[in-house]
Every structure is written in C-alpha cells, then in structure tokens.
Amino acid sequence: MADLLGGRRGALDATLPPLAFAVGWLLGGESLWAGVGAALAVGAVVAGVRLRRGDRPRSVLIGLLAVCVAALIAVRTGKAENFFLIQLLSNAASALAWTVSIVVRWPLLGVVVGAALGQRARWRRDPALLRGYARGSWVWTATYLVRLAVFVPLYLGGQVLGLVVARVALTWPLVAAALAVSWVVLRRSLPAGHPGVRHPVTEGADAQPG
C-alpha cells in the first residue's frame, strides 16, 4: 500500500506546489499571481524530477495537471484559498467512494491489495478477508473525513496558511497512521489459523459471499 501510494517521496512531491504557492503568495504581498507562478514553477520542476527517476508519465502528468487546474481556479475566482478547492473536493469524493465500496461489498482496500497481489477478485470469495477488508476500508474513509473536518473550516475562513499547514500535516503522517491501523484491523478480523491476505481461503466458500 505504501508503495502504491508513492511513499514519503510521493507525499513530499504532492506538498511542494502548495508550499510554493504559500511562499510566493506571502513574499508577493499576498499576490495571487506570485503564488500561482511559484506553484506552477515548482510543479514543473517536480514533474521533471519524477520523470527522471522513472515515475509513470501518466501519473506525473496527472499531478502536474492538478496543480495547473488549482492555479486556474484560484486565478479565475481571485481567491487564494481556492487553490486548495480541488484538494477539498477530492477528499470528499474519496470519502464517498470508499464508503460506497464498503456498502456494495467491494471494499477498496481489498481491491487495491488484491490487485497488488495479483489475486483479482479471489479475495472476495473468502468471507473472513472480505469482512477484514471492509473494516480496514473504514479506517481509510475516516482519514478523508478527518481532512474534510480540518479543511472545510479553514477554507470557509479563507485561511490560506492554515490550509497549507493542514495539507502538509495531513498527508504522509495521516497515510502512515492509516496504513498501520488498517493493517492491525485487517489482521485482527481474520480468524485464528487463517493463512493471511496472500492466501484467500476460497474452498467451500460461495462465489458471492452473503
């Protein structure tokens, strides 16, 4: 999971453009254009570094596009806090997606881990794993809700620096906590003697567990 999410290096890459925006905004006397210019410049540098170290071009372009769209929204609205609007909306969408995945019995934690382990949907035929992944997915849902609980008041209050601090503080530290807690929840959800996530117990299980 840590590798799939980009690890600490990926989290650092994601926080550099917002930090640059805040620095440019402050040094420019709260100039929106200075902040946007700094964010775009740093975003371009980050994209170049990621390409040189072998990151997937598609992933790099998506990251750079997110910075460009955030800058465009801020410029078009004339509000510095709107640079963080995409972050707020993406967390809301993620919280909804993870919740829905649990309700429809396709918990995203299982989808991600199952794909990484090459299991496809075989893990769904193991009732214990399905239950464990659902419980673990609630941990990830909670991370997005925590971010929203922090981001929304800061956004509504126009607290640009507060949004930057929250963005940094609630990126890798929160992801690391979610990784640890969701793993503990998943392991404790499995019965004694279960071979673990790499070996779904499907013999005698229904194809679509109830």
Rank of each mutant, 00 (worst) to 15 (best):
G157K: 11
S94D: 10
A115W: 11
G158L: 03
I86H: 02
V111I: 14
W138N: 06
G162Q: 08
V139F: 03
G136L: 07
P17R: 01
M1E: 14
G193P: 05
L174G: 01
G54D: 03
R53K: 12
L5F: 15
A207S: 04
G196W: 07
T141P: 04
A92I: 15
W98A: 09
P200C: 00
W123T: 03
R50T: 01
L174I: 10
A14I: 02
G37P: 03
A11Y: 08
T202Y: 02
G28D: 02
L154G: 11
A95K: 00
L64D: 00
L109Q: 12
P200M: 02
G118W: 14
V42H: 08
Y144S: 14
G210W: 00
R8D: 00
G63S: 09
V185E: 04
F84K: 05
G28Y: 04
F151D: 06
D13Y: 11
G196N: 00
L161S: 04
G193A: 08
G158P: 05
V36E: 01
L89I: 15
R53S: 13
S101L: 12
T202A: 01
A177K: 06
A192P: 08
G35H: 08
W33G: 04
L156E: 04
A95G: 15
K79G: 01
R8P: 07
N82P: 00
P57Y: 03
L27I: 12
L85T: 09
L51Q: 06
A142V: 15
G118M: 10
A2F: 10
L170H: 07
S137R: 07
Q159L: 13
V146F: 05
S31P: 01
L32K: 06
S59R: 07
N91W: 08
A128S: 13
G6M: 06
L85W: 08
V46W: 09
D3T: 14
G204P: 00
T99Y: 12
L179K: 01
W123N: 04
G210V: 08
V113S: 09
A121M: 13
A115P: 01
R135D: 02
H199I: 01
A134D: 02
S90Q: 14
F21S: 08
S137I: 12
P18V: 10
